[in-house]
Simulated scan of single mutants.
Amino acid sequence: MSSFSNKFHGKVAVVTASTEGIGFAIAKRLAEDGASVMISSRKQENVDTALAKLKSENLTKVAGVVCHVGKEDHRNKMIQETLRRFGGIDILVSNAACSPMFGPVLEVSISRTITTIFDINVKATFLLIKEIVPHIEKRGGGNIVMISSLSGYTLEKMIGAYGVSKTALLGLTKALVPECSEKNIRVNCIAPGLIQTRFSEMTWKNPSIRKNVEALIPMSRIGQPSECAGVVSFLCSDDASFISGETIIMSGGIAPRL
Results as ranks from 00 to 15, higher is better:
Thr49Asn: 12
Thr49Lys: 14
Thr49Glu: 13
Ala50Met: 09
Ala50Pro: 13
Leu51Phe: 08
Ala52Tyr: 11
Lys53Glu: 14
Lys53Pro: 06
Lys53Arg: 15
Ser56Ala: 14
Ser56Met: 11
Leu59Pro: 12
Leu59Arg: 12
Thr60Leu: 10
Thr60Trp: 03
Val62Arg: 12
Ala63Asp: 15
Ala63Val: 10
Ala63Phe: 11
Gly64Ile: 00
His68Lys: 12
Val69Glu: 00
Val69His: 02
Lys71Asp: 09
Lys71Thr: 05
Lys71Gln: 14
Glu72Ile: 04
Glu72Arg: 14
Asp73Thr: 15
His74Tyr: 14
His74Cys: 13
Arg75Phe: 09
Arg75Tyr: 11
Arg75Val: 12
Arg75Lys: 14
Arg75Glu: 10
Lys77His: 11
Met78Gly: 02
Met78Tyr: 00
Ile79Lys: 02
Gln80Met: 03
Gln80Thr: 01
Arg85Asn: 14
Phe86Cys: 10
Phe86Ser: 11
Phe86Asn: 13
Gly87Glu: 11
Ile89Arg: 10
Ile89Gln: 09
Asp90Phe: 01
Ile91Asp: 01
Leu92Cys: 05
Val93Arg: 01
Ala97Glu: 13
Cys98Lys: 13
Ser99Ala: 08
Pro100Lys: 04
Pro100Ser: 04
Met101Ala: 07
Phe102Ser: 12
Gly103Ser: 01
Gly103Lys: 04
Ser109Phe: 02
Ser109Glu: 12
Ile110Asn: 03
Ser111Arg: 02
Ser111Met: 03
Arg112Lys: 15
Thr113Phe: 01
Ile114Gln: 06
Ile114Pro: 02
Thr115Val: 10
Thr115Ala: 06
Thr115Ile: 06
Phe118Thr: 03
Phe118Leu: 08
Asp119Phe: 02
Asp119Arg: 07
Asp119Cys: 00
Ile120Cys: 01
Ala124Thr: 02
Ala124Cys: 03
Thr125Met: 04
Thr125Tyr: 01
Thr125Leu: 02
Phe126Thr: 13
Ile129Lys: 00
Lys130Cys: 00
Glu131Gly: 01
Val133Thr: 11
Pro134Glu: 07
His135Asn: 03
Ile136Cys: 05
Ile136Pro: 10
Glu137Gln: 14
Glu137Leu: 02
Glu137Val: 02
Lys138Ser: 09
Lys138Asp: 09
Arg139Cys: 03
Arg139Lys: 15
Gly140Tyr: 06
Gly140Leu: 06
Gly140Ser: 07
Gly141Ile: 05
Gly141Arg: 06
Gly141Ser: 07
Gly142Tyr: 04
Asn143Cys: 08
Asn143Lys: 10
Ile144Trp: 00
Ile144Arg: 01
Met146Asp: 06
Met146Ser: 09
Ile147Cys: 04
Ile147Val: 14
Ile147Lys: 08
Ser148Gly: 09
Ser148Lys: 06
Leu150His: 09
Gly152Asp: 07
Tyr153Gln: 08
Thr154Lys: 13
Leu155Met: 11
Met158Asp: 14
Ile159Met: 06
Gly160Asp: 09
Ala161Thr: 07
Tyr162Lys: 13
Val164Trp: 01
Val164Phe: 04
